[in-house]
Design a protein around this nucleic acid. Structure first.
Length: 567
RNA sequence: CGGGAUGUAGCGCAGCUUGGUAGCGCACCUCGCUUGGGACGAGGGGGUCGCAGGUUCGAAUCCUGUCAUCCCGACCA
């Protein structure tokens, strides 16, 4: 490719509306153009990167025995009504009507369609197991799209779905996919960690997310992990053992005390001269339009995804102050589980409340708390608390660590979540109709591209792993009008391309500085500069990742390209 | 959906307080000159000033409404 012909425009400045470094660099280096919020055009450079990631995915998925197909992006409401998700998916599902006034939607995922297709096609246990996948655009009308390709509304995803006759066979395939995913990301130049996670709107029981761990980036997920046994989990799923602490408030007698205007846990602890972990706080929520109160130790926070699951709810939000008065008959800051009508308000006790003694709770009355309280017997505890760094691994009891991660893939064991309601069945050896046991496996292709940039960049631009770089080599004749430089550069260009090495020649008449800046910004793994040293028969060979510069002959440069790119 | 900010040329911005022919830098086009880290000179093209009302002889500027974008929160791959 001649740089003069490449459909790209690099910008001298970062865009104003970007926050994440991958977003800034993708725009500035001319990879993407925004059309609307969370909706981007992938320019030729980006398309090449996406194609490389997709090809790696294809090779590995095919090698695992999966088959590629392609499903519709616009889907009728019918299949979504069958699975029950038309009602529960919410606003993230972009709905519209066709000319006949039929309800339609843009696909955010494809469980419904694939279940319907397989149900029509696979009738016998002899045809199972089956694993099919596609690489395609998805649309999710996110509340707040941001960070460019890290959280777009339209994005490219590889989604695979597997069908089985038994849980054991699903687990076997799940492991095959887990291994395949590790290989795929490794080939993309990305180290990932598989972490246990909540399965969210997709549903199912067991699931893992593949995280690119980034300490600096805007990755939105906290990942807790244990160096000792390898346990790792998303914060919405992590389980910990609390360090042993004294959670005895020391109040020997239960009594009501005046706590005028003491609303926060911090103030209350100071006021009573106790630690926050000797207070049992109440956090009020509205879930699916109903009230709930979570009792949790004062120094801990509620993890809302865990709570969502514990309540088996579709949505939750914190209670507003007026609702606290309405539902709990008390003012915020002084509520407790006592004195609440439990037939009307759901009350949950987090496991962090277990073992607390002679503690402090609200008195359900303004400016009053109860000290020296103790829990009644026979309380069921749930785990809805956010893990903190320094708590201990629930597997091996060593300290947990935390890091930030970008989720680039996930795998789910769905079971019969979709096949049952959709009545998607096969006939088993005994002639019985059985619902398929299903798994599903996603990779965010466009997000993987962004994640690679989050991981690999410097002040000058992108540093692509060679496996997914849009081109391998950028040949820069310092002065294209210089006959010798031009000839050597074009000669290199032809030879490299003949060897299957993807080369760009910067044939623009701009000054060298412009070409160097663009080369760094776009992120070619190798740059070969043909300049004044050509009088000695030498070119300059520079690798983007380590910045090492060597002066070698053009033939040596070709050899070196091969060596680097094949390694 | 709450809080904050911003909408002026492809990108980055000034002008608005105090209403009077819409500007600057980059990018783009032409000519000259230059060619190892985003040169220089001269000339040129491009904008219903987010949109809709209103006030006014006259609105980018003042008023009202509305839409969009970004940040924080809620929420989420």
């Amino acid at each position: 490719m001649k740089m003069s012909k490449l459909f790209v425009q690099t910008l001298r400045e970062f865009p104003n509306d970007a926050e994440a470094i991958s977003h800034k660099l993708l725009v500035r280096a001319g990879y993407i153009k925004k059309l609307a919020n969370g909706i981007y055009t992938y320019m030729p450079l980006a398309q090449r990167v996406l194609a490389k990631i997709s090809n790696i995915i294809r090779e590995e998925m095919n090698a695992s025995g999966a088959q590629e197909l392609l499903m519709p992006f616009v889907q009728p409401a019918e299949v979504w009504q069958k699975s029950g998700r038309w009602q529960v998916y919410g606003k993230e599902l972009l709905r519209c009507k066709d000319r006949h006034d039929n309800d339609m939607c843009l696909a955010p995922t494809h469980e419904e369609v694939i279940t319907s297709v397989v149900s029509d096609t696979i009738n016998s246990y002899k045809q199972l197991p089956l694993n099919v996948y596609q690489i395609q655009s998805k649309f999710r009308d996110e509340i707040r799209p941001r960070f460019g390709l890290l959280r777009g509304r339209e994005f490219i995803m590889k989604d695979a779905y597997s069908f089985h006759t038994s849980q054991e066979d699903l687990e076997r395939e799940y492991q095959v996919m887990a291994d395949t995913y590790t290989k795929i990301f490794k080939r993309c130049g990305l180290e990932t960690r598989a972490v246990q996670s909540d399965s969210g709107a997709i549903g199912g029981s067991v699931s893992h997310e593949y995280m690119v761990l980034t300490d600096t980036a805007v990755g939105e997920n906290d990942v807790f992990y244990c160096d000792s046994c390898g346990y790792s989990a998303n914060s919405n799923h992590a389980i910990s053992i609390l360090p042993s602490e004294i959670t005895d408030g020391g109040f020997l007698k239960e009594e009501i005390v005046d706590t005028p205007n003491v609303k926060t846990i911090e103030d209350l602890a100071k006021f009573l001269n106790i630690n926050e972990n000797c207070i049992l706080k109440a956090v009020a929520y509205i879930y699916d339009s109903k009230p709930a109160v979570v009792m949790i130790r004062g120094d801990k926070e509620v993890e809302e995804t865990k709570l969502l699951n514990a309540l088996n709810a579709l949505e939750i939000r914190p209670m507003e102050e007026s609702e606290v008065v309405e539902y709990l008959g008390s003012s915020a800051g002084f509520i407790s589980y006592r004195g609440i009508d439990k037939t009307k308000v759901k009350v949950l006790f987090d496991k962090t409340a277990k073992g607390m003694k002679n503690f402090v709770i609200g008195a359900n009355e303004k400016d009053k708390h109860i000290v020296g309280a103790n829990l009644e017997e026979n309380i069921d505890f749930v785990d809805v608390s956010l893990v903190k760094e320094g708590e201990y691994c629930s597997v091996c009891k060593k300290p947990l660590k935390v890091t930030r991660g970008i989720e680039v893939g996930n795998i789910f064991q769905l079971g019969t979540k979709y096949s049952k309601p959709m009545n998607a069945c096969y006939t088993d050896a005994e002639g019985q109709l059985k619902p398929y046991i299903m798994g599903c496996y996603g990779i965010g292709v466009s997000r993987t591209m962004a994640a690679a940039i989050e991981k690999y960049h410097d002040d000058f631009g992108i540093i692509w792993p060679k496996e997914i770089a849009p081109y391998h080599v950028d040949i820069v004749p310092v002065n294209i009008d210089d006959e010798v430089q031009s000839k050597v550069a074009y000669d290199l260009y032809d030879k490299l391309n003949k060897l299957g090495i993807e080369a760009v020649i910067d044939d623009r008449s701009d000054r060298a500085g412009v070409k160097f800046k663009d080369a760094d910004l776009i992120g070619f793994p190798i740059r070969i500069t043909v300049g004044k040293t050509i009088s000695d028969g030498l070119v300059e060979f520079k690798t983007r990742n380590d910045g090492v510069v060597e002066k070698i002959t053009p033939d040596e440069a070709i050899e070196k390209c091969q060596k680097i790119l094949l390694s």
